[in-house]
Design a protein around this nucleic acid. Structure first.
Lengths: 131, 131, 131, 131
DNA sequence: GTGGTCTAGACCACA
DNA sequence: GTGGTCTAGACCACG
């Protein structure tokens, strides 16, 4: 499962936003996109910590927040699983998670007095190159 | 100029990213979009601080960074002005400032397994509604 | 007896307090209230474990604590029975088991600056609706 | 303010539920009971930590949860204040916070086959003695 | 084995 | 000065 763990997450230790938050958001996206299904067992805290060279407490903090959020569920002494309530995620639901970033982009475009057409073309290009 | 100041910036004190950074980025966008032209006088630190109810040191820090960046220029004893070198901003240059946010959006869309088409449509809708 | 077992206990696996403790307290209350009389045979560990989908070790731990407490007695090779010493329970004795929770409620009411009258009325209402 | 801090909270380090949660719940009750009003400055993390002989991180964790819950608000670099949205707390609202514990007491009373009358009398006595 | 909690101490970002 | 984050290491509760 370790190899699985390593490929499941990609953490930028030097990033602006904290590691635990990167973990939280990635798990949330993996769940809502269906790559993690309800009932799936999550890698253990220690496993992730070792695979990503993090302190277990950092991972634990992320798990704790995800549990509070209802995304993960704790099975005492047995580890965490993806919560049953965590909907598989319809396209509309997934799009909702993308909205904040796109709204920010729209605001910036407006402040830059960029033509909507230009902004859209740029986004299209970026989506293509990242493919 | 005070009334001008209040309307020039919009600061969200409760936002995730720090106030000084919001100031820096807003000034940068105003300059590159031509809403602030080279030679224009910037409001004084204390003027902005008072208008937006901020700590003067916060405003000062933003001005310092903008000066380091060559966006603003300091005239000893006379306040800051928009630097002459600060180009009015060709479209390509402006688009460059939008890129990071769009790249982030593209990455999130991929992690959500959203169709590029869907992401683009959503962006188009947001751009339209924000108009 | 299995059917009996399932209805005898109600375990909330997602609850805040541990499963083994829920078992211990429920047995203690059943005994002191007379619903389990001295000499009664308790369901076997594996029987309870299967009926409630619990780890047998969890049930075993609860039985161990109840034995230490003198509530249950172990008959080698024959399972556990309700201890003879486990008095049927006079009202005063039963009330003692309720005290801790009520003391906690009283403390919380005080911290909430709730009128004792209000707290009492609320408790009366809850007792009634749960009947 | 230190003396204030010491008297504001009462922590049982040996208690079953964790320190950070005791802090969270006490603050929540103080806010909803009006003893802490919106806009009030909270003691600093270090101040509480020192007054109660706790690790600052433990206090910080409590503050973080209270912020996520909307009970407290962070003023960056200036400390935490009671959130404006944190309603002063009508009696009904306060009673709601007492409900869970009373529901638990009611359930236990029922399992003990205690007369509602007896349970109520016991609660009345406890409320009186704690006064 | 699992996650949870706490401590100690360091460093950073912000105002 | 404020809170936030991370690390290291210990201990506990649970199953």
């Amino acid at each position: 499962m370790t190899t699985h763990t390593a490929s499941l997450f990609s953490i930028a230790t030097g990033s602006a936003d904290p590691i635990y938050r990167q973990l939280v958001e990635q798990v949330r996206r993996l769940v809502v996109s269906g790559q993690l299904a309800p009932g799936d067992e999550m890698p253990s805290v220690r496993e992730i910590a070792q695979a990503l060279a993090l302190n277990p407490m950092t991972v634990s903090k992320a798990y704790g927040l995800l549990e509070m959020d209802g995304v993960l569920a704790r099975r005492r002494g047995l580890g965490m699983i993806v919560a049953g309530t965590a909907g598989a995620g319809k396209p509309a639901e997934r799009a909702a998670l993308l909205r904040p970033t796109l709204e920010r982009a729209a605001r910036e475009a407006r402040e830059l007095e960029l033509d909507p057409r230009t902004a859209l073309d740029l986004f299209a290009a970026i989506l293509k190159e990242a493919q």
